[in-house]
Structures are given as C-alpha cells and as structure tokens.
Amino acid sequence: MKNYGLLILVLSMLVSCKGQTKKINGVSFVASRDAINQSHIDPVVEVNANYAAIMPFGFVKDLQSPKIVFNTERQWFGETSKGAKQYIEALRKNGIKIMLKPQIWVWHGEFTGYIKMTSEDHWKALEASYSKFILEYAKLAQELKLELLCIGTELEYFVENRPEYWFELIKEIKTIYNGKLTYAANWDEFKRTPFWGELDFIGVDAYFPVSDSKTPNVEECLKGWKAHVSVIKEKQERFNKPILFTEFGYRSVDFSGKEPWKSERSMNSVNLQAQVNTTKALFETFWKEDWFAGGFVWKWFHNHELVGGKDNFMFTPQNKPVEDIIRNYYNLN
C-alpha cells in the first residue's frame, strides 16, 4: 500500500508538471472600430492560438501630460471597456483564454517609455489618472474572471521615477483582481524593472536584436539569441518567475532582426524569408524551455482576409509564410 501511494503521488506530480509546461500560444488581437463575430475568430483558432491579448487604450496628449483619456465616444469600439468585453466574450466562446493588456497611446505615436513629468504635482496627477485607468480594467478582469492582467506596457521612465507608486498600485490591484499579473517591459527595460517579485510572470516585449543581415538565416539568429538568453535566464532565476513574451514578432522586411522594434513605414522592402527565419529562431530558442511560459505574437487583426499578405512589410503574420510557422509551433505546444 505504501508503494502504491508513492506511485500515485509521483503520477500526480507528473500530470501537474505537464499542465504547467503547456505554453501560452497567443495573438495580440488589435482593437478595431467594430464588434467582432465568429468569422473574425475562426482564423485565431486555425492558427492554434490558445490565448489572445485584448488591448483597450487610454490616450495622453504628449510625453509630459499627466491626464489619461479613456472610454470616450471618440475612441474605436475595441479600444473601450465595452468593446474589450465584447471581444473577450466572443473569443472565450471558442476556448481562447485572455490576457487583458490596457495600453497608453501618446498622440503622434511618441514612445510611451519616455513619459516623464516635470513636477511633483504632475507626477501625482499622472499616478491618480493611471490608477483610475488600470483599476477600471482590473475590475473588468475580475468580473469576467480573466486568466491574466497586464498592469502596464513599456512605461520605463514612469516606473523608474516612481517605483513606490507601482508597488502600491500592485497591492491595490490585488485587492480587486485575483488572477495572474504581469507587466510588459520593453526588451531593454526588463532588466531594471523593480517589481517582478510581486507579479506572476516576468513580461517582456521581445524585440531583441539578433542579426545585422539583410536576410538572416536561422543559424545566425540562434547565435544572436545566446547573449540575450543568458540575461533573461538570470532574471528568471533571480525572481523564480516564468518569462512571458507579452509581445514578440518581426516585420517582413530586409534586416528584420537588426532593430526589430522599429515600425517606420520608410522601411518597406518586403522580405518574407527574413520574417520566417527570425521567427523560427525565436521559437527554437524559447518554446522548449520549461521556464518559458509562452508569448503573444504582434500583431493580429480581426479582418483576417483583408490584412497582411505577400506585399505587406509590417509585423502581422497574417496571410504570409510565417503564419504557417506560427501555426506549426503552436500546434506542438
């Protein structure tokens, strides 16, 4: 009997470990003007995704403005809490789990990591405005019993200058929402983010440079990842938290692995093979690791049949050869 009980214990541990190694195979589902229906969700299911990041937006006037405007009639439907709820409910009917990822957009497209106030009064006003913004979505996440909430995206100067606020904000979020938490740090920010110990995943927007070649091959991209992996793994071991790529992906352009974060439309030389090779290398580097939770490909539009394609030079994998690469790797994990 004693040996039988030990066998049961071992088997239960194996089942538990197997469940923990199931990857988050996600898409970053872009907000649109319209409600979504089953025709918009079928392509998500067909690419073997099991998660979607839903991304409502708040807007600030400029990098020194402390006021976040959100849930207005001027916003697209998918950018509001009402739209996010409709998207979530439609996706979940298809077995797709959700990361709610409210984001800030600076007018004129300036980088959110540079948001920085010029006075103590403005910092306090920003904190109050951001709390109102993110706590509304924490309530929505709790109401819908969502699996994962991302508490911010690429807000490095805000975090760097006001770390005490962020620790207190996380405590407040936890009084509202009892699911898993992460933060989406930029690829060169996550090393300095101070509050990983308070969250469930170390979130990284994974636009790491891996190759300077016009059309990088898989082997050189794998080599290019090695230095980054050691830094990522060090942070994972220090906090004993799994790594989650809150965003990952490459544009279908020349030199796609050189500065993957760039989105300028002046970079318009289509290179589908570069996108395929860089993406393969990322999957080969991370998806086999038990300390790696998975990630959300950037980015996925609702109107699948009208976007992407072989003449498209932006990030979306839709209707490009790389879509099959993602489908195959997501099917394995």
Rank of each mutant, 00 (worst) to 15 (best):
K2G: 05
G5Q: 13
I8T: 12
S12A: 15
S12L: 15
S12W: 10
Q20E: 15
K23T: 11
V27R: 08
V27M: 13
S32V: 10
R33V: 02
Q38I: 09
H40A: 12
P43I: 12
E46Y: 07
N48L: 10
A52Q: 04
I54D: 10
F59Q: 01
S65W: 08
V69C: 00
F70W: 09
F70C: 05
T72N: 09
T72K: 12
R74V: 11
F77D: 06
F77R: 10
F77W: 12
F77Y: 15
E79A: 11
S81D: 10
G83S: 07
L91W: 13
L91E: 11
K93S: 11
N94A: 14
N94M: 06
K97G: 01
I98Y: 08
K101V: 05
V106C: 00
G109T: 00
F111M: 01
F111D: 02
Y114I: 00
K116T: 04
K116H: 13
M117L: 13
T118V: 07
S119G: 04
D121N: 14
H122V: 03
A125K: 15
A125T: 12
E127K: 03
S129P: 05
L135D: 00
A138V: 00
Q142E: 14
P163S: 12
E164M: 11
E164F: 09
W166Y: 12
Y177F: 14
D188I: 02
E189Y: 14
R192A: 09
F195R: 00
F201G: 00
I202R: 02
A206F: 07
D212V: 01
S213E: 15
K214P: 09
C221F: 07
G224H: 03
W225L: 01
A227L: 01
H228G: 01
V231G: 03
I232T: 03
K233T: 00
E237W: 06
R238E: 15
N240S: 15
I243K: 06
E247C: 09
E247V: 03
F248C: 05
F248Q: 04
F248N: 05
F248W: 14
G249P: 05
V253P: 05
D254M: 03
K258Y: 10
P260V: 13
S263W: 13
R265Q: 08
S266M: 05
N271K: 01
Q275Y: 06
V276A: 03
T279A: 10
K280I: 15
E289D: 11
W291M: 06
F292W: 07
A293I: 00
G294F: 06
F296L: 03
H304D: 13
G309Y: 09
K310D: 11
D311Y: 04
N312M: 07
N312C: 11
N319L: 08
D324I: 02
I325Y: 09
I325L: 08
N333R: 12
